[in-house]
Structures are given as structure tokens and as C-alpha cells.
């Protein structure tokens, strides 16, 4: 069961107070294995939530349920007032508003950087080519690689690829951004450029859920930190609470192992 902490409850959002994402009693099974156990969480508009925890704890599964890359077995997931169901129209509605950045970037290798970014706006939002390209160039400017527009992903470094992936998600003007270990596949010297981009995004008021092992990022950028283990939310709190004064033994053990 979710443990209450003195500081915060997973269902109490920071940010503006209005909620963007609500998970209520969410369970998820892979065969007999229960990957998510009765997850309750609320993320407010403009809030940045960092999810940490050992591997296999269900962090990725949880955020993948939010844009239905995984299907939850019971409970309720509501994104910006829309409850996820099996209806493909509803799912696509949610996906349009939800950007996702993957550990392995997952850029489309057969398209140029600019085409990667304009694909969504053109095919999903039906933006004309010219407008989509202007938007794409603007976003590349924002992630600081405008000169790479006509290269293919394979010609870019990992850090550049991940920034393109962020730009690709932003091109859909999402209301929420989900980050699934965005720096785990990067060489150490490239982690910073990606984290900086993410920090800027957070400062611009984007609602974000970030699964990461970057404790520095969690400490600096997060409004709240969620610690998961064995498919459960173990502890939730502000970064100060979390890193200086965690209550749960499992949190203490985890932090002692990684810090």
C-alpha cells in the first residue's frame, strides 16, 4: 500500500493546483507478475515530478501507461480530463497531448532530423508543410542544433539525437511531457546537454514526469520526487525532504546505495 509521508501524499499535486494527470488505484500485470500495485498519483499543471527507484520497480511501466503504450488492468487514468479507455480515438486524443522521450531516442532513422520533427504536426495536426517546417526549425533552435536539420539521426551524437527527440515531442505542443530515462543511454559527457534542455523546458512551465537516475536533476528541478519499489509508490516528497530526511527504510537503503 501507498505509505503516507509527513510531507506529502502522491495524490496531492504541487504546481498550479489544478490536476493534469490522475492515476487512481492502477494495477498492471505482466502475466502473473504484478508490475504496478494500486498506484495513486496526481500531477498538477506545470508540475515537475521525478520518479526514481531501483530497476524493475515499475517506474517506466507507470509512465508508459499514461500514454497507453502499456494497457493498465484496473483502476483509472485521467489525462487532462480525458479518461483512458480502449477507444482508439480517445487514446490518440491523449497521445496528441502527451509527448514522450525514450531512453533509446527512437528517432526515425529513414527521415531527416527536420522530417522527424514535422511528421507529427503534418500527419496528426494537418499543418501545411511550410508552417510545420518553420515550427521544426524554431524548435531545433530551441534545443540548440539548428544546423543539423537536414542530417539523418544516424549522423548525430547521442546527446543531439535525444535533443531532437525532445523537439519532436514538443512539435505536437503537448500539455505533458513524459521522460523515460532520457539520459541512461548517453555517454557521460552528453548527459548535461540533455538535462539542461529538460531544465529549460521545466522552467518554461511544462508539466513533466521524469523517470531518471540523475539525482542532481531531481534535487534541482523537481517539485516532487516519487520513490517506487516493487511496483508500489513507497514515498513521495519535496526534494529537500527526500534527500535530507527520508522517512521510509527502503528509501534510505536506495539512497545510500546510489548517493
Amino acid at each position: 500500500m501507498t505509505d503516507q509521508t509527513v510531507f506529502s501524499d502522491a495524490t496531492q499535486a504541487a504546481g498550479t493546483g489544478e490536476s493534469m494527470i490522475e492515476l487512481t488505484n492502477v494495477d498492471k500485470f505482466f502475466g502473473d507478475f504484478q508490475a504496478l500495485k494500486d498506484i495513486n498519483m496526481r500531477v498538477g499543471k506545470q508540475e515537475v515530478v521525478v520518479v526514481i527507484g531501483p530497476s524493475g520497480s515499475g517506474k517506466s511501466t507507470m509512465i508508459r501507461c499514461i500514454n497507453r503504450l502499456e494497457v493498465h488492468d484496473s483502476g483509472q487514468i485521467v489525462v487532462d480530463g480525458v479518461e483512458l479507455t480502449d477507444d482508439i480515438k480517445v487514446i490518440q486524443e491523449v497521445r496528441k497531448e502527451t509527448g514522450m522521450v525514450f531512453q533509446q531516442f527512437n528517432l526515425f532513422p529513414h527521415l531527416t532530423v527536420l522530417e522527424n520533427i514535422t511528421l507529427g504536426p503534418r500527419q496528426v495536426r494537418n499543418l501545411p508543410k511550410k508552417e510545420a517546417e518553420d515550427l521544426g526549425k524554431e524548435l531545433l533552435e530551441k534545443v540548440q542544433i539548428p544546423e543539423q536539420a537536414h542530417k539523418y539521426p544516424g549522423q548525430l551524437s547521442g546527446g543531439q539525437q535525444q535533443r531532437v527527440a525532445i523537439a519532436r515531442s514538443l512539435a505536437m505542443s503537448p500539455k505533458v511531457m513524459l521522460f523515460d530515462e532520457p539520459t541512461s543511454a548517453l555517454d557521460p559527457e552528453m548527459i548535461k546537454e540533455v538535462l539542461d534542455t529538460m531544465q529549460e523546458l521545466a522552467e518554461s512551465g511544462m508539466t513533466m514526469i521524469v523517470v531518471t537516475h540523475e539525482m542532481g536533476f531531481a534535487r534541482e528541478v523537481a517539485n516532487r520526487v516519487v520513490f517506487m519499489a516493487d511496483g508500489e509508490i513507497v514515498e513521495v516528497g519535496t526534494p529537500e525532504h527526500f534527500f535530507e530526511n527520508p522517512t521510509e527504510d527502503r528509501t534510505k537503503l536506495f539512497l545510500s546505495q546510489i548517493l
Binding site: 503504450l69 497521445r95 525514450f102 527512437n106 511528421l119 496528426v124 515531442s169 505536437m172
Partner: peptide, 9 residues
């Protein structure tokens, strides 16, 4: 998944 995540059918 990347295609789905940007809302492609």
C-alpha cells in the same frame, strides 16, 4: 511506440 507517442494512427 515513437510513432504512437506522437499520435500517429
Amino acid at each position: 511506440e515513437a510513432g504512437q507517442s506522437i499520435g500517429l494512427s
